[in-house]
Design a protein around this nucleic acid. Structure first.
Lengths: 152, 152
DNA sequence: CACTCTTCCTACCAACTAAGTAGGAATACT
DNA sequence: AGTATTCCTACTTAGTTGGTAGGAAGAGTG
C-alpha cells in the first residue's frame, strides 16, 4: 500500500480536529479549529493543508466556517468516521492496478487469476481501514486488528 | 494498494515463464523462454520487459542464459514462488508512508496511533500475497483468501 | 461603511517517478 | 567469423506529487 503525503496529512488533520474540537457529539459540531493551528500542531505546510481540508469538506467529513472565529469541525462524531473514509476522500480508490481500479485490470491468458489476487488484497485493506475509527486512534487502542503478520 | 505497471508486468511475465517453461521441477530449471516470446504473449513492451526480467534475475527468481537458444527459466518450482516474492523483487517494500517504510513514519501527538494502522494494513496485504503462489494462479484456484470484503 | 480575519479557489512551479526507447557490450552457440 | 540473445546504461517523455502564491468571497467587529 502506498500512503501519499496527502493521505497522511489528511488523517493527521482529522485526528487533530477531533482532539482539539472535541468532535461533533450528538448532532452538534464541535469547536471550530483553524487551519493554521492544525498546520502547526501536526507540522504540515499550511497552504498545502488548505487544499486537503477543502477535499475533506467536499467529501462531507468536515464542516467549515469562514471569517474571524472561523475554522473546521467534524460533521460526525469521531467514532463514526473511519480511516477508510478519510483515505477515500483524498485519495480515490484504495487499490489501483496500472492506474485502473482493481476489478477492471483486463488480464488474458495465464494471467487471468491475478484479478482475484488484487480483489483479495483490496478486501484485506478495506477490512482494516474501515474497521478503525478516529475515536479508536485517539484512545490509543487501534488494535482491533492483528499486527503480527509477516512483514516485508 | 498501488500496483505499478512494472509490478503487474513482472507477475504476468513470471506466470508466462512458469506456464511455457513448465517450471523448475525438482532442482532442474525448466525450458528456457525468450524475452521476445513473453513480451508477445502478454502484450508487454519488449525493451521495458527486459529491464524487469533483469530485476527478477537479480532477485534470484529467474535463471537466464545468453546466446542463441538463450532465455529465462524459474529457479524454483511455481508452487515455491509467491506473488509477494515477485512484488518485492521489482517494487521494494509493500507498504510505504510518504515514501518511507510504514514502521518509521515518525508520528507525534494525536497521530501516534496511525503507525499501528499501517502495520496492520501491511500485515493484511502480506498475508494475501505471501500465501498465493504462481502455481495457485495457474490452476485458476487462487481463492485461498476471501474476496467478499467491502470494496471502495 | 471600513476593516480584519479566515476560508475558498485557481493557477503555477519544481522535483521526482513511471513508462518506455535506443544502442551497444558481453556471452553463447554454430 | 557470424548470429542470436541476454545484459546494461543512458536517455526521453509524460504525469504525479508536494508545495507555493495571490487573491476573491464570506463573516464578524467597531
Amino acid at each position: 500500500m502506498f500512503v501519499s503525503a496527502r493521505s497522511d496529512y489528511a488523517l493527521r488533520a482529522m485526528l487533530a480536529v477531533a482532539a482539539a474540537g472535541g468532535g461533533g457529539n450528538g448532532d452538534r459540531v464541535g469547536e471550530l479549529v483553524k487551519a493554521a493551528s492544525l498546520a502547526e500542531v501536526q507540522d504540515i505546510p499550511l497552504s498545502f493543508l488548505q487544499g486537503i481540508l477543502l477535499d475533506l469538506r467536499r467529501a462531507g467529513l468536515l464542516h467549515s466556517h469562514r471569517g474571524a472565529d472561523g475554522g473546521y469541525a467534524l460533521t460526525r462524531p469521531p467514532d463514526e468516521i473511519t480511516v477508510g473514509d478519510v483515505l477515500r476522500a483524498v485519495g480515490g480508490s484504495l487499490t489501483t492496478v496500472r492506474g485502473l481500479p482493481a476489478e477492471r485490470a483486463g488480464y488474458h491468458g495465464v494471467a487471468a487469476g491475478l484479478t482475484d489476487v488484487w480483489l483479495a488484497v483490496h478486501g484485506a485493506i478495506a477490512t482494516v481501514v474501515d474497521s478503525t475509527t478516529l475515536a479508536d486512534l485517539l484512545t490509543h487502542a487501534p488494535s482491533a486488528v492483528s499486527t503480527d503478520a509477516p512483514l516485508a
